[in-house]
Design a binder for these strands. Structure first.
Lengths: 183, 183
DNA sequence: ACCTTTGTACAGTTTTAACTGTACGTACTT
DNA sequence: AAGTACGTACAGTTAAAACTGTACAAAGGT
């Protein structure tokens, strides 16, 4: 049955090609705070011809269903994968979000927005303490230190204000006016 | 000696204020692929009135000198800390890079540029394999799969091309024309 | 030339993260 | 109402990362 042999070979090539991309995704997805196993999971669901069940994923990756469950949760939380309904199927089905702009920008924006806000708040509070100290203290050492610290914090604050504006650029989709979407 | 008591109290307030900011930095610095201990190290050097030696850091943080050595290496690699010379001092001295735009954008750009390039290359190679398969195969299943995969990969590629342009915006400082630096 | 100081490689240990298997609650099926 | 299928919480295990102490090479001082 030579046809079958050719089919097997071609199928192998298909899998190898997919594997190349999946591996790369897995290697780089830590930038989105997702670990590489979950990255592989993403890649697997990405290439699947149909939405997958947890059991599908489990057998495809040779990992426990529990891991699939937590992994897929991480991916849905990050809007990189979405749940899908098909009538007559009781199991949960998942597919990858096909708008890459949306799925990846989302992760990026959320993470950076959040930590930038926290940092800004910390800077403001630290600055307030320093200013209070400046007001009250009569000790030169203290005053000097507080003044130096305030200068440094102002530098940091300026940067974070700028960063906040940059993040807004993405949140508001204004970035697409500057760098238009492709395709 | 009441003056001394007041001084101690004020100094404590100063440290507490610094601590607030350092803790926040440490919590969020993982976004730059740096762990929180090294984040604390950064914060410590940031507030130091003079450039610090490894021994200074070690005693200040209560951690081994070895850790300081590897930590400071991570920070200098990321351009967040720089080595500084002072005549008569044999020990290496370090201070934080005071241009936040430079130090943090640097990390951001390098990391994203690198992994975007790798992903693009992987996409291109995977696409080539798929196209080859499309050319040669006479099996409908294979052809169908390869076509579907190609479509998906094109979507991803468009996104990464866009992302490449976005990163250039930062690399070339063009971003500052759109969102000007503060202060 | 010898001694001292300094930074880091390396091996060993501790801490943290990832993963698995079991067990259970919920919801569907009959 | 009883049975089955499904997803996930949780505890336990395994794998990875972070950290430390020792030891040594390089450079400076005497």
């Amino acid at each position: 049955m030579p046809n079958n042999a050719i089919y097997k070979e071609e199928q192998q090539k298909l899998y190898d090609a997919r594997e190349r991309f999946i591996t790369e995704i897995a290697k780089n997805i830590h930038l989105y705070n997702i670990n590489s196993s979950v990255g592989r999971l993403y890649g697997t669901v990405f290439f699947a011809e149909k939405p997958m069940t947890l059991d599908d994923m489990s057998s495809s990756l040779g990992m426990s269903k529990t891991s699939m469950s937590t992994g897929i949760r991480a991916l849905t939380d990050a809007n990189m994968v979405e749940r899908v309904w098909e009538k007559g199927i009781r199991k949960d089905l998942y597919k990858t979000e096909d708008d890459w702009y949306k799925s990846f920008s989302n992760v990026f924006i959320t993470r950076w927005r959040n930590s930038t806000e926290l940092n800004m708040r910390a800077i403001k509070e630290t600055k307030e303490s320093m200013e209070e100290l400046l007001d009250k203290s009569e000790n030169d050492d203290i005053i000097n230190s507080a003044e130096l610290d305030l200068e440094k914090l102002n530098g940091a604050e300026a940067y974070y204000e700028w960063l906040t504006d940059v993040i807004s650029l993405f949140e508001t989709d204004e970035i697409f006016k500057i760098i238009p979407k492709r395709s």
